[in-house]
């Protein structure tokens, strides 16, 4: 079982991002995903900055993958995407089928990110044919769903052609919109957002009228109000999940990496902190804690 750091979902100042990856370089992480996946207006780091970080991390012994935008609308976003896809060096995570199209044209193998709708063995088999080498499950799928999928006969003969990866820690990306909810929360329109996301390094918390955390606003992305945390389910994942992904949080990401590594085989279970959930993996409502 390997561990990865997903792309940073929030809008952090450049210095904070660089500091985070210096820490990553010294950590026990195996794989690092770099890149802006939420909003093309966030330009604290450009592709060249990410490539610099990528080289630094690779020299530190990490496998690096460039992660790409999820909701692609403008032609300018497609041009930027093409630059990522044709970087010529690092593996690319596609978060929209548009990226798969570009990578497939170039004959480049790819990682299929969690926002691409691959739900069954036949879709997965087709994607493997296009060059998928790693499949990150959609966040709403359960352990049982994954077990059922991998046990299908049409997967047996290709099981060694791809890896499986599961987002197992962090606020879950649940939706992407044409509208920017952080700008809206400041009474601004998206066109006049003034990049206000940068003020909220952990997003903005949304509560119900009786005080339950329901969502986290992160620009055009809506995240789960609760933090997903599958630390105690790791021992059941052997043979199913090849790579366990932690989504960078504003605080405590590397402490949790250490806890996750310690509990790979069940040696160091943790009480689930208040505000954490694990429902999806357990075939419950995502927000549930089982």
């Amino acid at each position: 079982m390997k561990f990865s750091l997903g792309p940073i979902q929030y809008f952090w100042p450049k210095a904070q991002v660089q500091q985070f990856y210096r820490q990553a370089a010294e950590s026990a992480i195996d794989i690092v995903y770099l890149g802006e996946t939420v909003c093309s207006k966030r330009r604290e780091l450009k592709l060249d900055d990410y490539l610099q970080l990528a080289h630094m991390l690779r020299e530190a012994g990490k496998q690096v993958c460039l992660s790409t935008m999820t909701l692609l609308e403008a032609p300018s976003e497609l041009r930027e995407l093409r630059r990522y896809c044709e970087n010529g060096d690092f593996l690319v995570e596609a978060n929209d089928v548009g990226a798969i199209q570009m990578l497939q044209e170039q004959g480049i193998t790819f990682v299929c990110g969690p926002a691409i709708s691959c739900y069954n063995q036949h879709a997965l088999r087709r994607l493997v044919g296009m060059g998928l080498q790693r499949w990150v499950l959609p966040v709403e799928l359960s352990g049982q769903w994954l077990r059922d999928l991998l046990s299908q006969s049409c997967i047996q003969d290709i099981r060694d052609c791809f890896q499986t990866e599961l987002l197992a820690f962090g606020h879950l990306p649940l939706a992407w919109s044409g509208r920017c909810f952080t700008a809206r929360s400041e009474n601004r329109s998206k066109d006049q957002c003034e990049l206000c996301c940068i003020k909220y390094p952990a997003g903005r918390t949304v509560t119900s009228q009786d005080g339950k955390q329901v969502f986290v606003l992160n620009g055009i992305q809506t995240q789960s109000g609760e933090r997903y945390n599958l630390i105690n389910q790791l021992p059941q994942m052997h043979g199913l999940v090849d790579i366990v992904r932690l989504s960078p949080q504003h605080e405590g990401t590397f402490d949790w990496l250490a806890k996750f590594k310690a509990n790979q085989h069940g040696a160091a279970p943790q009480p689930l902190p208040a505000g954490d959930c694990n429902g999806y993996w357990l075939q419950l409502a995502g927000m549930a804690a089982g």
Binding site: V139, E140, L174, A175, W176, S177, R179, T222, Y280, G286
Partner: peptide
Amino acid sequence: IMAEGRCYLSSY
């Protein structure tokens, strides 16, 4: 209001 087919709010 969300990109259809990639919205998991309801299952959450």
